[in-house]
């Protein structure tokens, strides 16, 4: 397994909702699991989030969103990542969480998000999914 303490994860909250409990719990859980987690705080633009991933050289990006704007903001983040030469699923593993209807979740997964975690997801499931996604990245030898 990949040494988690050398894997950097950005947890970000795009858009205008200030509900950051979920993002903070997930950030904390990943830290407890041994990951190096960078939390951006609330009300981030897609540009700020992508710049953070670039400057922090993160391998994982978790996006928390409860405002309903996920079908606008997440595709934009994915596009900006690609423009920086960071291909979702190959260079950076992207997951989402929050209030996202199943149909939209399916769409997002087709676009390159590896998983969408809704309310009530056990933290263990998130950590395991992140572990697996990390192993599939190019830089870790996949």
């Amino acid at each position: 397994m990949v040494d988690r303490s050398k894997v950097r994860v950005v947890v970000a909250k795009p858009g205008l909702d200030g509900h950051d409990r979920g993002a903070k719990v997930v950030a904390r859980a990943l830290k407890e699991a041994g990951y190096e987690v960078i939390y951006t705080g609330i009300r981030q633009t897609p540009e700020q989030i992508v710049e953070t991933v670039v400057q922090e050289d993160a391998s994982v990006l978790g996006i928390s969103i409860l405002s309903g704007a996920h079908m606008v903001l997440i595709p934009k983040i994915l596009r900006l990542l690609e423009e920086k030469g960071l291909k979702p699923g190959e260079d950076v593993a992207v997951f989402a969480g929050g209030i996202i209807p199943p149909d939209d979740a399916e769409e997002l997964k087709k676009m390159g998000v590896f998983e969408v975690f809704g309310p009530g997801t056990p933290l263990k499931a998130i950590i395991e999914a992140v572990d697996k996604a990390v192993e599939n990245l190019k830089r870790f030898g996949a």
Binding site: K31, E32, A33, V37, I38, T40, Q48, T52
Partner: peptide, 16 residues
């Protein structure tokens, strides 16, 4: 755990 939660950056995000 070897993990870390790095939160300084969030105070400076407007410069990112």
């Amino acid at each position: 755990t070897g993990g870390a939660l790095l939160g300084d950056r969030l105070r400076m995000q407007r410069h990112s």
